[in-house]
Design a protein around this nucleic acid. Sequence first.
DNA 1: TTCGTGATAGAG
DNA 2: TCTATCACGAAG
Length: 202
Amino acid sequence: MFADPPGIISAEFFRRDPLSCARELIGTELTWGRCAGIIVETEAYAAVDDEASHTFVRPSAREFVSKHAAGTAYVYFSYGAHWMLNVLVKGKINGFVLFRALEPTRGIALMKRRRGLDDVRKLCSGPGKLTQAMNITRRHHEMDLCRDRAHCFVWPSAKAEAVADRRIGITKSAHLPWRFTLRDSPFVSVRAKALEAGERRS
DNA sequence: TTCGTGATAGAG
DNA sequence: TCTATCACGAAG
């Protein structure tokens, strides 16, 4: 465990490896302008040898990794409709953490308006949904997420229990247990699948 | 289960 | 230019 709390997560946190970051970001609060939410679902991507990572096929993504510092936002547009929010990890292993779901905590009325929905559980239960709820777009690409108090990660008051399982929504290297969810959270996009029989609960 | 959507990148 | 691909979501 990275010892830094309480307060805002520093860039040092992201100077390690994508797996540790993805796991330990579960339970932290993502503040985004007037909105905020507890991170309940993340996925790790490695910059090298990971077929599912943008860096595997996109020179622009590799350039992004080399030109930016740990803790920088990597935002991209997907399927002609959705923005995806990632944060750059640069250290022992380079890569990204993709934010897949949040439990809304602040600015809920605003998120409801942006999503055109009332069900709080559905406001941020998916990578495209959370960016819509928080109005994250290309203008946030390359933003430093460790400096601006309005766009940052905040340590939780209590330690959260993260569960690892397979990444979803991808066609390549999906078997890697690089997805992390907050145990038993009703705010995740897809409930965690037990990797081993012994890990199953409920 | 399907299908729309647009940015990216590589081939021709 | 053309086309395959894509870490999605909503409707049905």
